[in-house]
Write a protein that binds this DNA or RNA. Structure first.
Lengths: 129, 129
DNA sequence: CTAGTTGCAAAGAGTTTGCATGGCG
DNA sequence: CGCCATGCAAACTCTTTGCAACTAG
């Protein structure tokens, strides 16, 4: 289950993932199909999800989308996710702090400070509508 | 594509969905399997998703989970989603307002005010760890 | 009546598993 | 050299589609 050995394949998958804000299995496989098998890509991404390094969600296109979560331990970090194009913008701003304190205090809910997702429409997609 | 006629099946699916904060296709099908076919359940839920009444995400169990979104047009409404059990808590609190204004103003991002999701651990799951 | 709806069976798509081969340490 | 990782093919699961029968209006 746990990956113990370092291999060329694991490195390639990780490197490729880090090149994307947001990706699908297919996009990674497309880039690496000559070097890494599909199964291994699934296995590596599963491992990253278990480690909390990658998150997974279903886009408007009904496909599994993944994002690499930069290790970021700021208290004031959050994501703006566009519901239309799936693009994710990282924002660091202390405007999140009041909210964070309120939730921890009043709702007995342990905030995952690196995984606050604000859904909506980005600049580009807003204009298209 | 558009649902024009009212049928017993549609009513049953909608009624069952409203009974759950959070559900999977299987849970609904299990309850209604004598009255409504699986295909129809998928179709009705797709319709509700398109209407913005239901949202869909992938849980830790790797299954599609859905939630019925109560029609709520408050500016200060958001969700607390437990990453462990998938449970969703609705919160109304004006602590969201400063954040909302900031995002709209500074990041040229059109907030979906009924779809702000704060991820983390709920009371119960926090204690289990 | 007529067009929308249902549900079965089959197809499709994405993902996981079994197992033989290959490679890290 | 031993154990872990890889990758193909097959299996599996969830979801969608085709189509004939049914039904609301």
């Amino acid at each position: 289950m746990s990956m113990v050995y370092n291999t060329k394949q694991k490195d390639l998958v990780l490197k490729e993932i880090k090149n994307h804000k947001e990706f699908t299995i297919n996009e990674i496989h497309e880039k690496l199909k000559d070097e890494v098998g599909l199964t291994t890509i699934y296995r590596k991404i599963d491992e990253l999800i278990k480690d909390g390094k990658v998150s997974k969600y279903i886009g408007k296109d009904n496909l599994a989308h993944y994002q690499y979560l930069e290790q970021c331990n700021l208290d004031n970090h959050f994501y703006l996710r566009c519901e239309e194009c799936g693009n994710i913008e990282h924002v660091d701003c202390d405007c999140i702090n009041a909210l964070s304190e309120h939730i921890t205090g009043k709702h007995n809910f342990s905030l995952d400070k690196n995984n606050i997702v604000i859904n909506g429409l980005c600049n580009k997609c807003k204009d298209k509508k």
